[in-house]
Each structure stands twice: as structure tokens, then as C-alpha cells.
Amino acid sequence: MSEVLRLEAPFSEAAARSLEVGQRVLLSGVIYGARDQAHRRFIDALERGEELPLDLRGQVIYYVGPTPVPPGRACGSAGPTTGGRMDRYTPQLIAYGVRGLIGKGKRSPEVVAALKEHGAVYLAATGGAGALLGRRIREMRLVAYPDLGPEAVYRIVVEDFPATVAIDSRGQNLYELGPARYRKA
């Protein structure tokens, strides 16, 4: 599992289902940055039977609230935020068609079940490595909810963005398997 897999985003259900827990990936392509309040608005829209401001079916959502971009740069600091805060919204978004999630930290059993049922994956990026991860972002453009400031939705072009498959589409969970290997009594 030490081989690093180069993965293009967005990716298909078949590609998602082929990823295994613990696999290191370098992700390149287009992903969408969205966090707490954007998720809430997505779900509100879905529950009202409305279209989302952008089509997220088959796409990858990155839980990120980046810092403002300094002049002359593509991106500031842009590491992952805690995925668990999105747990109450995620199963619905997976059912809607979101294919991948990038964040950090543990997820609820409901999220794991949704990943299994619909063939989606949860990738972990290193929390607190925002300066390093921001360098792997080539382009960032605000695409929805500008009033939310750092919580707005961004279209993000990444190149060789490092992540690890934390929960695969079979429900194998590195946040359980990893610590279990090193836990003493």
C-alpha cells in the first residue's frame, strides 16, 4: 500500500469502488470546496426540491475554508476541516450523487453506510498542513454563496494533492483500523 496512486478528479463510481482504505493518492483535477453553512444550504435546497447552485453529482467535495489569497498567488492556506461536522448533511449529498469527500477526522456510521451504498469515498488530507496543501492548488474560484465569506463554495483545481483513503466504499475505516493497530490495552 506504499505505492502512491495518481487519481484524476472527478472520478467514476467504478474508480471510487476500486480505492482501498490506506491507499495514498495524489489527486489532480477539479474539486469543490464547501463546509458547514454551504452544506446546510445544499440540503435546504434539496429538501425544497430545488436545483443546487452547481451540479455536484459525480464530484468531489473538499471540506475547506481557505484563507484569503495574497496577491501573486493561486491560493493561501487551504487544509481540510473536520469532516464530522458535516455528518448530518453528508448521507443526503452522497445519495444525491456526490462521489468523493476530502476532510479530516472521523465520520458517523450513517456516512459510512452511505459511502458503501452509493460507491463513494472519504479521503483524509493532513489537518494543519494548510500552507503545504495550498501550494497544490493551482486555481480557486468562488462559484456560490459569496455572502458566506470563508464558507462560500469554491471551484478548486488541484495538482498532486496528497491524501489517503480513510473510508473506502466497502466501509473499511482507517480511523478505526489505524489506531487499533497501535492501541495498547
Binding site: 484563507t67 495574497p70 487544509g79 494548510g130 503545504l132
Partner: peptide
Amino acid sequence: TGRRILGELCENARLARSDRIPLCQD
């Protein structure tokens, strides 16, 4: 995996200092 992540964090600290980019987006 842990050693790799710690390596990333040390590299992150160097980049943040040299580029004057926040260590973490939060």
C-alpha cells in the same frame, strides 16, 4: 504513515514561515 504526516507538518512549518502563508487555514 505517522512519520510521513510529521514530515509534512515540519515541511508545512518551513513553508509557512518562508512564504508568510498561515500554517493552517483556520
